[in-house]
Amino acid sequence: MSSAIELDGVRQVFHVRDRQGRRQQFVALEGLDLSIRAGELFVLVGPSGCGKSTVLDLISGLNRPAAGSIRVGDRVVDQPGLDRGFVFQQYTLLPWRTAQGNVEFALEAAGGLSRRERRERARQYLDLVGLDEFADRYPHELSGGMKQRVAIARSLSYEPEVLLMDEPYGALDAQTRERLQRELLAIWRRTGTTIVFITHDIDEAVFLGQRVGVMSSRPGRIKAVVDIDLDRDHPDQDVRSTPEFARHRHQVWSLLRSDLETVDDPARAEAEEVGRVA
């Protein structure tokens, strides 16, 4: 099962205080339109602080937008739900439960399964992420990469239609990250779930994404959506060294770069600052 996601004219505003202690409004997102197809692996990149995570919080239903609408499948999002799974950068495993217990935790929340069914389902998803042997380990006994795989197993276990991933590999070392990226592609092909993946790593975006959305910052909106056309089906081939990969990478890089330059320009940055707090 998978669902399309539709964001329409989304605006998000936070209450903040500046250095002088004056209360202000911080416009995080403004007029953001985005449609993600059902079953797609969509990657969102953007400079840090551009509002990538804010978009994900809105799709998850953790927060409500100040204006605009968000739809997942045929429902309007107004609260969190089990049709959407969320993988956080900081793993967020319960430290007092084993890997198995952490997956079961999600299934307990979902309800409708007996204790035995939960145990079997948890096993099945730990198996999917290659951790069946580590089911009885506590989080502190697992490496960062393993913890993140448990978190992914937990989010997939209740079979959501959409999987939201907020820089899930940001805290991992390069080799582990590459392995998990390949695993994610395999899991995505097998489950067919719609995945929205946030990163600030251009290589990761191009490697994973069927399409890559590039965000501009302050206020955040979608600047461009790049179609990535890569043949990732040959396991022996180093996709990252192909000319197509380099071309896509450069394309995304240039889009991000032009956004950075406007911020580097002091006069324009200041103008933006004024616009932001207005």
């Binding site: 969190p80 959407r84 956080f88 307990e108 929340a109």
Partner: peptide, 25 residues
């Protein structure tokens, strides 16, 4: 707060959140 966020994402009720997340933590 990250644990609370993950509980909310799972749609856990406040009582269940307290019992399964907040109290053990």
């Amino acid at each position: 707060p990250q644990l609370l966020r993950s509980a909310r994402v799972l749609g856990l009720s406040p009582v269940a959140t307290f019992r399964k997340v907040v109290f053990p933590a």
